[in-house]
């Protein structure tokens, strides 16, 4: 959508990392922004440092009633949400499926996948009725290919987001609502610390993001472009392509096998 016409953007997980990068990129373009986040302290800090056109809203994306309350308050202040960025998420727990505890699995699915559905549930119907708007869902390159062990729940959630978003785009296209799937690779954020803060398990290896040179502000600019051009996919860096292509070749090989047997 034309960002100069966007009235209001709401971003979950917006008080730090990629969400904040997106919030700043949209705010810079003159769009009033609601930053929703589970972390009250971070929320107070980032909204204090920004002007009146950035508001904070405390939100646990797992809670559907909270979503309704946040929507009502945010829209009373800034008007209908034209841009929804479902971005809140936690890190992988690093546990193999056989060893991982079910609670950790449930937490990752509830936040990284269910939380995104809850955002869609809260806003998609209104956008459809108004015939305008854009939804960005944060998946991951782990939502396109699995390359390491110990990410079963995380990758399942992110593949779920990928599937949900691709289906959503088809459903919304005829109503003039755009949908973008954001697949970041390694981006320097405080994902691990935030995950621990809400009681999530993480293994050491997921604690530090490798410095890929891609910053949350870069990602914010890419997402702003993606919304402007209604891109189906925004990928932050290209280095995972060989693994993705290899996975596709595996599926193709299974099709070929079936054609021959």
């Amino acid at each position: 959508m034309n960002l100069s016409e966007a009235k209001h953007a709401l971003i979950s997980g917006g008080a730090s990392g990629i969400g904040l990068g997106i919030a700043d990129a949209l705010s810079k373009r003159g769009i009033p922004v609601t930053i929703a986040d589970i972390n009250a302290e971070a929320l107070a800090e980032v909204t204090a440092a920004r002007g009146n056109s950035v508001r904070g809203a405390l939100l646990d994306t797992r809670e559907r009633e909270q979503w309704q309350k946040v929507k009502a308050e945010a829209e009373a202040a800034f008007g209908p949400v034209d841009i929804l960025v479902n971005n809140a998420g936690i890190a992988p727990d690093g546990l193999p499926i056989s060893d991982g505890n079910s609670e950790s699995f449930d937490r990752i699915i509830a936040i990284n996948f269910g939380g995104i559905y809850n955002g869609v549930l809260t806003f998609a119907g209104d956008m459809r009725a108004r015939g305008r708007g854009h939804i960005v869902n944060t998946s991951s390159q782990a939502g396109l290919v699995t390359v390491i062990t110990g990410v079963g729940a995380y990758s399942a959630a992110k593949f779920g987001v990928t599937g949900l978003t691709e289906a959503l785009r088809t459903e919304m296209a005829e109503y003039g609502v755009g949908v973008t799937l954001l697949c970041p690779g390694a981006v320097k954020t405080n994902l691990a610390a935030n995950t621990e803060k809400i009681g999530g398990n993480i293994r050491k290896y997921s604690g530090e993001m490798p410095d890929s040179g891609v910053t949350p502000d870069h990602v914010g600019e890419m997402v702003a472009d993606g919304i402007e051009q209604n891109l189906p996919l925004v990928v932050t860096q290209g280095d995972m392509w060989p693994a993705i292509e290899n996975r596709m070749l595996g599926i193709k090989a299974a099709c070929d096998y079936r054609n021959e047997h």
């Binding site: 699995t146 062990t149 990758s155 399942a156 992110k158 779920g160 599937g163």
Partner: peptide, 13 residues
């Protein structure tokens, strides 16, 4: 679709 994509991924992991 979302659930089935997740199953493919979990199986790969």
């Amino acid at each position: 679709t979302a659930a089935k994509h997740a199953v493919v991924s979990m199986t790969e992991t």
